[in-house]
Design a protein around this nucleic acid. Structure first.
Lengths: 143, 143
DNA sequence: TATGCTTTTGACATTCATTTTCATTTGACT
DNA sequence: AGTCAAATGAAAATGAATGTCAAAAGCATA
């Protein structure tokens, strides 16, 4: 699965005429090794610890590429940090965000997806993507 | 309805021991006269044109108050600007955002709301609020 | 209406995430 | 190897949002 993603990025890069660079390889490796919902800063620090040379801007730029390539998805929660989550082909999940402990639980609901498609169709919209976040207190924090 | 909102804010202010000020009245008036989904900057400019004295910080502070008072809801779309939409009691709507022309269409779907509640319950979550945005191209831009 | 106390305001500075700039480096093709 | 455009890193710039603080304005009371 990690290999597939690397291939996918290679294909994307080839199609776009992008060069293969050491930095992009490193960033991709480390991104693929992270948990879901890494913030750019988190990832940057992780990268820096093994590769001090890599700059802030490169991480930002490269993550945008991953998003374009369909490997990552940008998500905005309410903490002012952009996060990237791993995209698994054919799967879309949404988030339950605990405002108590900031934990994030993912869920998937086919019926909601269907309803979204219907709504979009009703308005003549061509869906590119969507996101849904439910904010509240998790089982632990509600007590 | 505008009067009700003004009353609602008065009540909130009274309960919180907040003072009634000229600025807050003006900002509320102008906020209530705007379309859905005003960004802070948009609102600030609108306010400034008739009331040049009012400062940036005051607009930010006051909008946060409106949100606390339940008159407004903060929404984050993908343009890096915080927007505030009008809250209508007992109603929740979500958004279709056109990435072509940046137009926003609202919709409401009771079934989705129900499913959200079920999902939250399944995870032991206590929902505070939620948001859902569908990104894509509107009927005009898709052509 | 004047007094005194406290909140609110506005200007400005600051912070923080992200983007831009630009000189230098590097990849890839000949 | 040589060429040239793309990519990088450091630093500066941007832009939204927040903090600071002295001055102004509410509001209660005399």
């Amino acid at each position: 699965m990690i290999l597939e993603k690397k291939k996918a990025f290679q294909n994307f890069a080839a199609a776009k005429g992008l060069r293969s660079t050491r930095q992009r390889d490193i960033i991709l490796d480390i991104f693929l090794s992270t948990h879901q919902h890494v913030s750019v800063e988190e990832l940057y620090l992780k990268i820096k610890s093994s590769n001090p040379g890599i700059g802030h801007a490169t991480v930002y730029r490269t993550l945008k590429l991953f998003a374009e390539a369909g490997l990552a998805r940008e998500i905005l929660l309410h903490d002012g940090q952009t996060r990237y989550e791993h995209v698994v082909a054919g799967e879309h999940h949404d988030h339950l965000v605990c405002t108590g402990c900031n934990s994030i639980v993912e869920f998937e609901d086919e019926t909601i997806e269907k309803l979204q498609n219907e709504i979009a169709a009703r308005h003549g919209f061509l869906i590119k993507n969507h996101k849904m976040e439910i904010y509240g207190l998790c089982a632990v924090c509600r007590n």
